[in-house]
């Protein structure tokens, strides 16, 4: 009889420890960062599809280059609107900043964490991150930025050897343009909506990955492209 109670006690402690280990936000983030750190560099083709109700732009093609720890470059053959937030490793760098992580629960497939940056200079106030329980990778992120509204990033992964998203959807708020300038055209914005914030999103579809190959540093140097 005593043995039975001891077994139950030990088993419950084991379960409790296991649950604590699973819901330790710092460990979850450390696992994500450890997997991300396996990617030292990559380059890929990207298609950018902007969906904002007052902007019409065709789908643009470009190339992205990344080199650890923080070099990132986008190159397009023609003009492209590239979202400031949500391009791949900007998300990882957010998790690398000093922060307090809170385990906020879970859904069927993901841990849900709240990330609060510790530094006053951080460009976001709070972020909610959905992290895949089994694969230790970020599925979704909602960010309240410091003065630039809220944005959401959703990541879809393919069957790559490394956990790099093949599709990223960035949702954001954007202010309606309210300066109809006659000489450049006529923008018929509803006056009631001018200046208001509206939502939009950008879909980034990556393909032709080349991971952990050699990328020369010159690729990351900005060029003067505005005029001849």
């Amino acid at each position: 009889m005593i043995n039975k109670y001891i077994t139950i006690f030990v088993f419950s402690i084991f379960i409790s420890l296991n649950i604590n280990a699973q819901s330790d936000p710092d460990k979850i983030i450390a696992d994500v960062l450890a997997k991300a750190s396996m990617v030292k560099s990559f380059e890929a083709d990207v298609k950018i599809d902007v969906d904002v109700d007052f902007i019409k732009i065709p789908v643009k093609n470009g190339k992205v280059f990344y080199k650890a720890p923080d070099k990132f470059r986008f190159r397009a053959t023609s003009f492209a609107l590239v979202p400031k937030k949500g391009i791949n490793f900007s998300v990882i760098s957010m998790l690398q900043q000093p922060h307090t992580a809170i385990y906020a629960g879970s859904d069927d497939a993901n841990h849900i964490l709240k990330i609060v940056p510790m530094e006053a200079s951080a460009d976001f106030v709070i972020a909610t991150v959905w992290i895949d329980k089994l694969k230790d990778r970020i599925q979704k992120m909602q960010v309240t930025s410091n003065g630039q509204g809220n944005y959401t990033m959703t990541f879809e992964y393919g069957d790559l050897k490394f956990d790099l998203p093949v599709i990223t959807i960035v949702g954001f708020d954007i202010q309606q343009i309210d300066i109809p300038m006659k000489f450049i055209g006529s923008l018929k914005v509803d006056p009631k909506k001018a200046g208001e914030r509206t939502s939009g999103n950008v879909k980034l579809t990556y393909s032709n990955f080349r991971i952990n190959g050699s990328i020369p540093d010159e690729v990351f140097i900005e060029e003067e492209i505005s005029s001849k």
Partner: peptide, 8 residues
């Protein structure tokens, strides 16, 4: 605020 302009 939202986009980086790649190209001119």
């Amino acid at each position: 605020d939202v986009f980086v302009f790649e190209g001119s």
